[in-house]
Design a protein around this nucleic acid. Structure first.
Length: 435
RNA sequence: GGGGAGAUACUCAAGCGGCCAACGAGGACAGACUGUAAAUCUGUUGUUUUUAACUUCGCAGGUUCGAAUCCUGCUCUCCCCA
């Protein structure tokens, strides 16, 4: 089974670069590999989902994955892919973030497993915190030349980039050495021979393999590298954004409904790519789906399956079902009839992820105009001006019926005698609850 | 240490005394078309009690009837020379 890993990545389009000898090593024996995650926030968004899935594939192929949280590297700032110097986070924030990220991981990897290839979770702060600068300079800095470090794209871009010389602090320059040392440390303590990551990490990873080799003078040290492509969208815009915000793996930050909608809205071209990367469906199933989708694109089978698989993987079967049900109702042509089939508790379950706001019955009975309903009383939109604009643009509906600025909400509009569904455009839904 | 350039709305980027809530581009949002797709076309994109007023162009003062535009000080960034 072990040999399946690289082959699996290959057909899924998840293989960008691989160091010679890596595949042979993986075929030979159970191997340990790690991926690092930056604690720049207290949760992870779907950009990191690729790396998580990479670890899961790795484990499924019989190998041992290590998830590394960068408590130390997070204090430095990775220059890769950044055109500006990063702002440093303070220690309290970092600790908080590390905790949040750890809890996300444990949803996907079972760190308590007793299997031989059970996943491991480490924090590089644990071994970096007592490393003095002098020791680091002697033991690590001596092994790698500045010339070598300067040759990395991430560094070159900052020093001689097209946008002029933006400059780079010594701190960020050091980053690749610290990450390289992580690799060496895991090699020593966990016999970890492979580092994986996004293709923007290739430079950092190879500094690591180089360092592992040079730190082990006189013995044959084996260190390998493997990267997957950065996820892009067909139109070139940035992957993983929705309504201006990131799509998070945490229901508190991105509701399951929105998460589900994000995948459902993928373009045909993107959906074909994503279903290979973000789901664990096997090759025949995926090919079948793509085939069927091409025959009847309007049914959106591909997007539906993609959204189902990813939502179930990241959240749960139940939460997926609720999100799907909410979507079906909100986008249904027979909205009025469908909505009535729900009793109150189902209603609340199904629409849990939809932004809601409460309003007192007294206020409601006095009459509620649309400006108040959209902004003044509910804050769905940022300002009254925005509400007025939306109404002028003919983009607001109450219970799926378009309304204009003069519309007044009455008890006629209440669903289950308590709820009103307001839409701005097709895809932004809000629920007002009258209490 | 010396010399130079610069800081404008989400981003890039004009404007250099009144016609500036600020050209333009991108992004974002919406409308039409559709398949909750793409492409295309159109509109919107500081706040408010919207034919008007108010707050905004790094920060703080000043000149002027009037400043994003002029002056002074401060903070920050980049470049070049030592």
């Amino acid at each position: 089974m072990a040999n399946a890993f690289v082959e699996e990545l290959r057909w899924r389009g998840m293989l960008h670069d691989i160091m010679p000898g890596t595949e042979e090593q993986l075929n030979k024996e159970m191997t340990t590999a790690y991926i690092g995650f930056d604690p720049t926030s207290d949760s992870l968004h779907i950009g990191s989902l690729v790396q998580i899935i990479l670890l899961v594939h790795f484990q499924n192929a019989g190998h041992k994955p290590i998830a590394l949280v960068g408590g130390a590297t997070g204090m430095i700032g990775d220059p890769s892919g950044k055109s500006d110097e990063r702002n440093l986070l303070d220690e309290a924030t970092l600790n908080h973030n590390v905790k949040g990220i750890k809890s996300v991981f444990s949803r996907f990897l079972d760190f308590n497993s007793k299997e031989a290839n059970a996943p491991v979770l480490v924090n590089n702060y644990d071994w970096m915190k007592d490393f003095t600068f002098i020791d680091f300079a002697r033991d690590v800095g001596k092994r790698i030349t500045v010339n070598y470090m300067m040759a990395k794209d991430s560094v070159k871009k900052r020093l001689f980039g097209e946008e002029g010389n933006v400059g780079m602090s010594f701190t960020e320059f050091t980053y690749q050495l610290i990450q390289g040392y992580d690799f060496y440390h895991l090699y020593k303590t966990h016999n970890c021979m492979l580092q994986m990551g996004g293709s923007d990490q290739w430079g950092n990873i190879t500094t690591g393999t180089e360092l592992v080799r040079r730190m082990n003078v006189g013995e044959e040290a084996k260190a390998f590298a493997l990267t997957c492509p950065l996820i892009t969208k067909a139109d070139g815009s940035k992957f993983g954004k929705s309504e201006g915000g990131n799509v998070w793996l945490d229901a508190d930050k991105t509701s399951v409904y929105k998460f589900y909608q994000f995948w459902l809205n993928a373009t045909d071209e993107d959906a074909e790519k994503y279903i290979k990367i973000f789901t664990f469906l096997d090759k025949p199933t995926v090919e079948d789906l793509i085939e069927n989708h091409k025959e009847a694109p309007h049914l959106r089978l591909l997007q539906k399956r993609l959204a189902e698989e990813v939502t179930t993987f990241v959240h749960s079967k139940e939460e997926f079902e609720n999100a799907e049900k909410a979507s079906n109702i909100l986008f249904s042509k027979s909205f009025k009839a469908d909505i009535k089939t729900l009793n109150e508790s189902t209603f609340l379950d199904v629409f849990e992820g939809v932004p809601q706001s409460e309003i007192s019955r007294a206020d409601f009975n006095e009459g509620l105009d649309m400006i108040a309903a959209l902004s003044a009383k509910t804050n769905f939109l940022a300002s009254n001006g925005e509400a007025r604009r939306a109404l002028k643009e003919n983009s607001v509906s109450v219970n799926k019926e378009k309304v204009d600025e003069d519309y007044q909400l009455t008890t006629e509009d209440l669903i289950n005698d308590a709820y009103i569904i307001i839409n701005k455009g097709k895809k932004n839904t809000y629920i007002i609850k009258v209490v």
